[in-house]
């Protein structure tokens, strides 16, 4: 690994350390700018136009946003997104509970852990189909169970009262698995001496978990919350697969409604779709900013 430094130092030799990072960054940065950074601004721009995706664009200012304010379907989607966000966060404590349950060293526990994690590996399309079958009236397993217990048959995905809850439950299945694996890794790395010392002092059960264990699981909790919030706001696949937004649009979420407006049989309203996307983006930015501020503080401390 030895090399000799030539006597004459070229421009490159002198500036290598200053130029190298940009050369290393260039390919990734170019791709990322073309496909991610620039399109964000383009979308914001398009949201001020009336555009069918093919013909000429017509500048209409904030008319798309004004229309949103009066759009019943937009409020339904927004309300469902909030519901998703709140209920999806249940995956964090539920994942912790499963992780605590599995954090043992009995024979075969490794296999158990992998099998519990299983739902996360499967595509959401497959999860959606599985749960559609699970919920199907008459021959779905869950509907059959509900019928035996209550004597009533409920078509979960056809009922405006339950449809979003049913889809969220399907989404929780893989999400709990994800949070579980984060917590299992976290539990693996907690300081056993602190736990033992606290036990000596008589701490156990809830107080041990709350005062000693959970603080040490902070990083795992942070990531679990991040991925769950992002997952909730990104929810699209399950809605599209399980109900296609129905019945009567009652299970729409913003991401799905945007797609429907911009690209479905209902017409190609790119500008209006972009406006919905911008609203979703703004909501997401609130969370992204929070995450980045926290990460920045950690970078400073490091």
């Amino acid at each position: 690994m030895s090399s000799t430094v030539p006597a004459t130092t070229s421009y490159w030799k002198r500036n290598q350390q200053r130029l190298a990072p940009w050369l290393f960054l260039a390919p990734g940065m170019i791709m990322f700018s073309i496909y991610v950074i620039i399109p964000i601004f383009e979308s914001i721009w398009i949201s001020f136009y009336d555009w069918d995706g093919l013909g000429a664009k017509t500048w209409i200012g904030v008319a798309n946003y004004v229309e949103l304010l009066d759009d019943e379907a937009f409020y339904t989607s927004l309300k469902n997104n909030i519901l998703w966000l709140v209920l999806y966060l249940l995956a964090v404590p539920a994942g912790l509970a499963v992780a605590l349950f599995l954090n043992q060293t009995v024979t075969g526990i490794r296999l158990y852990k992998s099998l519990f994690f299983f739902p996360f590996v499967i595509s959401q399309v497959v999860v959606g189909l599985i749960f559609t079958w699970f919920y199907a009236p008459d021959f779905g397993l869950l509907s059959a169970l509900i019928k035996t217990v209550t004597g009533e048959s409920i078509a979960i995905l056809a009922d405006e009262r339950y449809v979003t809850l049913g889809i969220i439950a399907a989404g929780l299945w893989p999400q709990i698995a994800y949070c579980m694996i984060l917590y299992l890794t976290g539990l693996n790395n907690i300081n056993p001496e602190q736990v033992e010392a606290a036990r000596m002092d008589g701490a156990k059960g809830w107080s041990l978990l709350w005062n000693i264990v959970l603080p040490q699981l902070g990083p795992a909790t942070f990531i679990a919350i991040v991925v769950t919030v992002i997952g909730a706001l990104r929810s699209f696949d399950l809605v599209s697969i399980m109900t296609d937004g129905g019945p009567y649009g009652s299970s729409r979420v913003l991401s799905f409604y945007m797609y429907e407006q911009a690209l479905s049989e209902y017409g190609y309203r790119m500008g209006y779709g972009a406006a919905i996307a911008v609203v979703l983006f703004m909501i997401m930015m609130v969370f992204i900013t929070m995450f980045i501020v926290r990460m920045l503080m950690q970078e400073r401390n490091a």
Partner: peptide
């Protein structure tokens, strides 16, 4: 972390 929809169009 951004939503895909902002890139879609």
């Amino acid at each position: 972390f951004i939503p895909f929809q902002i890139l879609m169009v």
